[in-house]
Protein backbone atom coordinates (compact mmCIF):
# COMPACT_ATOMS: atom_id res chain seq x y z
CA UNK A 1 0.00 0.00 0.00
CA UNK A 2 1.43 3.34 -0.98
CA UNK A 3 1.87 6.10 1.54
CA UNK A 4 -0.37 8.94 0.39
CA UNK A 5 0.70 11.42 3.06
CA UNK A 6 1.89 14.70 1.61
CA UNK A 7 5.15 16.18 2.92
CA UNK A 8 4.58 19.23 5.06
CA UNK A 9 5.56 22.57 3.60
CA UNK A 10 8.28 23.26 6.18
CA UNK A 11 9.07 26.75 4.84
CA UNK A 12 5.45 27.88 5.18
CA UNK A 13 5.25 26.31 8.66
CA UNK A 14 8.44 28.10 9.72
CA UNK A 15 7.07 31.41 8.46
CA UNK A 16 3.80 30.90 10.34
CA UNK A 17 5.72 30.05 13.53
CA UNK A 18 7.92 33.10 13.10
CA UNK A 19 5.02 35.55 12.95
CA UNK A 20 2.68 33.87 15.47
CA UNK A 21 4.04 35.79 18.47
CA UNK A 22 3.95 39.30 16.89
CA UNK A 23 0.45 38.69 15.49
CA UNK A 24 -0.88 37.38 18.81
CA UNK A 25 0.71 40.22 20.77
CA UNK A 26 -0.74 42.83 18.39
CA UNK A 27 -4.22 41.32 18.71
CA UNK A 28 -3.96 41.17 22.52
CA UNK A 29 -2.57 44.74 22.70
CA UNK A 30 -5.27 46.27 20.49
CA UNK A 31 -8.09 44.39 22.27
CA UNK A 32 -6.75 45.34 25.71
CA UNK A 33 -6.33 49.00 24.75
CA UNK A 34 -9.84 49.22 23.26
CA UNK A 35 -11.47 47.45 26.20
CA UNK A 36 -9.55 49.40 28.84
CA UNK A 37 -10.03 52.80 27.19
CA UNK A 38 -13.65 52.54 26.00
CA UNK A 39 -15.33 50.21 28.49
CA UNK A 40 -13.21 50.12 31.66
CA UNK A 41 -11.90 53.72 31.41
CA UNK A 42 -8.64 52.51 32.95
CA UNK A 43 -5.50 54.46 32.01
CA UNK A 44 -2.92 51.92 33.35
CA UNK A 45 -4.60 49.06 31.44
CA UNK A 46 -4.78 51.18 28.27
CA UNK A 47 -1.05 51.92 28.69
CA UNK A 48 -0.37 48.21 29.16
CA UNK A 49 -2.22 47.52 25.90
CA UNK A 50 -0.21 50.18 24.03
CA UNK A 51 3.09 48.85 25.42
CA UNK A 52 2.05 45.37 24.24
CA UNK A 53 1.53 46.73 20.70
CA UNK A 54 5.01 48.37 20.74
CA UNK A 55 6.55 45.10 21.96
CA UNK A 56 4.65 43.23 19.21
CA UNK A 57 6.14 45.58 16.59
CA UNK A 58 9.64 45.01 17.98
CA UNK A 59 9.06 41.22 18.02
CA UNK A 60 8.02 41.44 14.35
CA UNK A 61 11.22 43.39 13.55
CA UNK A 62 13.35 40.73 15.23
CA UNK A 63 11.45 37.86 13.57
CA UNK A 64 11.90 39.52 10.17
CA UNK A 65 15.66 39.73 10.72
CA UNK A 66 16.10 36.06 11.57
CA UNK A 67 18.36 34.23 9.10
CA UNK A 68 16.71 32.00 6.47
CA UNK A 69 19.43 29.37 6.85
CA UNK A 70 19.51 27.78 10.32
CA UNK A 71 22.73 28.58 12.28
CA UNK A 72 23.58 24.85 12.45
CA UNK A 73 23.53 24.62 8.64
CA UNK A 74 25.73 27.76 8.36
CA UNK A 75 28.15 26.21 10.86
CA UNK A 76 28.40 23.03 8.77
CA UNK A 77 29.08 25.07 5.58
CA UNK A 78 31.70 27.19 7.35
CA UNK A 79 33.40 24.13 8.81
CA UNK A 80 33.47 22.43 5.41
CA UNK A 81 35.10 25.39 3.70
CA UNK A 82 37.71 25.79 6.46
CA UNK A 83 38.56 22.09 6.36
CA UNK A 84 39.07 22.36 2.58
CA UNK A 85 41.49 25.30 2.99
CA UNK A 86 43.20 23.43 5.82
CA UNK A 87 43.72 20.32 3.69
CA UNK A 88 45.12 22.40 0.83
CA UNK A 89 47.53 24.39 3.00
CA UNK A 90 48.65 21.30 4.93
CA UNK A 91 49.29 19.38 1.70
CA UNK A 92 51.47 22.17 0.29
CA UNK A 93 53.25 22.49 3.63
CA UNK A 94 52.78 26.22 4.21
CA UNK A 95 53.42 27.28 7.80
CA UNK A 96 53.68 31.06 7.59
CA UNK A 97 51.09 33.51 8.92
CA UNK A 98 48.44 34.62 6.46
CA UNK A 99 48.39 38.23 5.30
CA UNK A 100 44.92 39.67 4.91
CA UNK A 101 44.70 41.83 1.83
CA UNK A 102 42.10 44.49 0.96
CA UNK A 103 40.11 44.40 -2.28
CA UNK A 104 42.39 47.08 -3.78
CA UNK A 105 45.30 44.60 -3.78
CA UNK A 106 43.41 41.45 -4.76
CA UNK A 107 41.37 43.29 -7.39
CA UNK A 108 38.32 41.32 -6.30
CA UNK A 109 37.36 40.86 -2.66
CA UNK A 110 39.41 40.81 0.56
CA UNK A 111 41.48 37.62 0.59
CA UNK A 112 44.28 36.04 2.60
CA UNK A 113 47.73 35.44 1.17
CA UNK A 114 49.63 32.53 2.71
CA UNK A 115 53.21 33.10 1.54
CA UNK A 116 55.97 30.55 1.06
CA UNK A 117 58.55 32.68 2.86
CA UNK A 118 58.16 34.47 6.20
CA UNK A 119 59.53 37.77 4.85
CA UNK A 120 56.89 39.41 2.68
CA UNK A 121 57.06 42.79 1.00
CA UNK A 122 54.05 43.72 -1.08
CA UNK A 123 54.24 46.41 -3.70
CA UNK A 124 51.48 48.54 -5.21
CA UNK A 125 50.54 46.13 -7.99
CA UNK A 126 47.21 44.28 -8.07
CA UNK A 127 47.57 40.53 -7.60
CA UNK A 128 46.23 38.17 -10.28
CA UNK A 129 42.93 36.41 -9.58
CA UNK A 130 44.53 32.98 -9.11
CA UNK A 131 45.05 30.51 -6.32
CA UNK A 132 48.85 30.46 -6.58
CA UNK A 133 50.16 33.98 -7.02
CA UNK A 134 53.52 35.62 -7.44
CA UNK A 135 53.50 38.82 -5.41
CA UNK A 136 57.09 40.01 -5.85
CA UNK A 137 60.13 39.88 -8.13
CA UNK A 138 62.09 37.20 -6.24
CA UNK A 139 61.58 33.54 -7.18
CA UNK A 140 60.39 32.68 -3.65
CA UNK A 141 57.75 35.43 -3.67
CA UNK A 142 54.97 32.91 -4.13
CA UNK A 143 51.92 32.22 -2.06
CA UNK A 144 48.39 30.90 -1.88
CA UNK A 145 45.67 33.50 -2.28
CA UNK A 146 42.67 32.00 -0.49
CA UNK A 147 39.13 33.10 0.23
CA UNK A 148 38.55 33.04 3.99
CA UNK A 149 35.40 33.50 6.11
CA UNK A 150 36.35 37.18 6.27
CA UNK A 151 36.30 37.60 2.50
CA UNK A 152 32.50 37.69 2.23
CA UNK A 153 31.96 40.06 5.16
CA UNK A 154 34.93 42.22 4.25
CA UNK A 155 32.86 43.47 1.32
CA UNK A 156 30.39 45.03 3.76
CA UNK A 157 32.87 47.77 4.65
CA UNK A 158 34.70 50.29 2.53
CA UNK A 159 38.17 51.78 2.75
CA UNK A 160 38.37 55.03 4.70
CA UNK A 161 41.02 57.73 4.70
CA UNK A 162 42.58 58.67 8.09
CA UNK A 163 40.63 56.06 9.93
CA UNK A 164 40.71 56.04 13.76
CA UNK A 165 40.32 53.21 16.27
CA UNK A 166 36.72 54.39 16.75
CA UNK A 167 35.95 53.93 13.04
CA UNK A 168 37.39 50.40 13.14
CA UNK A 169 35.41 49.62 16.30
CA UNK A 170 32.18 50.82 14.65
CA UNK A 171 32.82 48.80 11.48
CA UNK A 172 33.73 45.60 13.37
CA UNK A 173 30.73 45.96 15.72
CA UNK A 174 28.39 46.61 12.78
CA UNK A 175 29.54 43.46 10.98
CA UNK A 176 29.89 41.11 13.98
CA UNK A 177 26.92 42.24 16.07
CA UNK A 178 24.68 43.64 13.33
CA UNK A 179 25.12 41.96 9.97
CA UNK A 180 26.26 38.50 11.02
CA UNK A 181 25.32 38.18 14.72
CA UNK A 182 28.60 36.37 15.43
CA UNK A 183 29.39 38.40 18.57
CA UNK A 184 27.82 40.90 20.97
CA UNK A 185 30.23 43.75 20.31
CA UNK A 186 33.83 44.83 19.84
CA UNK A 187 36.34 47.33 21.19
CA UNK A 188 39.38 48.55 19.30
CA UNK A 189 42.56 50.33 20.32
CA UNK A 190 45.35 51.41 17.99
CA UNK A 191 49.02 51.92 18.72
CA UNK A 192 51.09 52.90 15.67
CA UNK A 193 50.78 49.87 13.38
CA UNK A 194 49.38 47.51 16.01
CA UNK A 195 45.67 47.06 16.60
CA UNK A 196 44.06 45.31 19.53
CA UNK A 197 40.46 44.21 18.99
CA UNK A 198 38.45 42.80 21.89
CA UNK A 199 35.40 40.82 20.80
CA UNK A 200 32.74 40.44 23.47
CA UNK A 201 30.53 37.34 23.51
CA UNK A 202 31.71 35.48 20.40
CA UNK A 203 29.06 32.93 19.36
CA UNK A 204 31.21 30.62 17.24
CA UNK A 205 32.56 27.47 18.83
CA UNK A 206 36.33 27.39 19.22
CA UNK A 207 37.47 24.19 17.60
CA UNK A 208 41.18 23.56 17.49
CA UNK A 209 42.37 23.28 13.90
CA UNK A 210 45.81 23.29 12.36
CA UNK A 211 44.89 26.02 9.85
CA UNK A 212 44.01 28.47 12.66
CA UNK A 213 47.77 28.84 13.31
CA UNK A 214 48.00 30.42 9.87
CA UNK A 215 44.72 32.19 9.09
CA UNK A 216 43.36 32.55 12.65
CA UNK A 217 39.94 31.48 13.90
CA UNK A 218 36.90 32.41 11.74
CA UNK A 219 36.14 35.44 13.95
CA UNK A 220 39.76 36.63 13.87
CA UNK A 221 39.75 36.11 10.10
CA UNK A 222 36.61 38.24 9.75
CA UNK A 223 38.08 40.98 11.96
CA UNK A 224 41.38 40.95 10.02
CA UNK A 225 39.53 41.21 6.69
CA UNK A 226 37.42 44.13 7.93
CA UNK A 227 40.51 45.97 9.24
CA UNK A 228 42.46 45.32 6.02
CA UNK A 229 39.55 46.57 3.96
CA UNK A 230 38.85 49.68 6.03
CA UNK A 231 42.52 50.70 6.32
CA UNK A 232 43.20 49.60 2.73
CA UNK A 233 46.42 47.98 3.96
CA UNK A 234 47.65 44.40 4.43
CA UNK A 235 47.07 43.05 7.92
CA UNK A 236 48.35 39.99 9.75
CA UNK A 237 47.12 38.30 12.93
CA UNK A 238 49.96 38.41 15.47
CA UNK A 239 48.20 36.79 18.39
CA UNK A 240 44.78 35.59 19.44
CA UNK A 241 43.66 34.89 23.00
CA UNK A 242 40.44 33.72 24.65
CA UNK A 243 39.56 34.66 28.21
CA UNK A 244 36.37 35.28 30.19
CA UNK A 245 34.04 35.10 27.19
CA UNK A 246 36.23 37.51 25.23
CA UNK A 247 38.28 36.93 22.13
CA UNK A 248 41.25 39.29 21.82
CA UNK A 249 42.85 39.66 18.41
CA UNK A 250 46.19 41.40 18.06
CA UNK A 251 46.70 42.65 14.52
CA UNK A 252 49.72 44.12 12.81
CA UNK A 253 49.22 46.56 9.95
CA UNK A 254 51.82 46.14 7.21
CA UNK A 255 53.00 48.77 4.78
CA UNK A 256 53.32 48.35 1.03
CA UNK A 257 56.60 49.32 -0.62
CA UNK A 258 56.19 51.93 -3.32
Amino acid sequence: MSDKRQPKNSHATALTDKYTLPTSLTAIGITLTALAYIILHSTPLSALGISTVIIAAVTYAIAKGQPKIPPQASDILLQTSIENISALVEEIGLKSKAIYLPASITGDKPKALIPLSQEVKLDKKILPKRLIVKYGTNPEDLGLLVITPGSAVGEMVEAKQDCSAGDIETAVTQVLAGNTGLADGAKASMNNNRLLIEIAGPHLENRSMWIYESIGTPIASIVASIVAQILDKPVTISRETFAKGKNTVDLQVLERKS
Binding site: A61, G65, G178, N179
Partner: peptide
Protein backbone atom coordinates in the same frame (compact mmCIF):
# COMPACT_ATOMS: atom_id res chain seq x y z
CA UNK B 1 23.35 47.65 15.75
CA UNK B 2 20.93 45.02 14.46
CA UNK B 3 20.99 43.30 11.10
CA UNK B 4 19.77 45.31 8.12
CA UNK B 5 16.16 44.01 8.06
CA UNK B 6 15.59 44.43 11.80
CA UNK B 7 17.24 47.87 11.74
CA UNK B 8 14.94 49.00 8.91
CA UNK B 9 11.80 47.99 10.83
CA UNK B 10 13.00 49.43 14.16
Amino acid sequence: PFNAKTQRIT
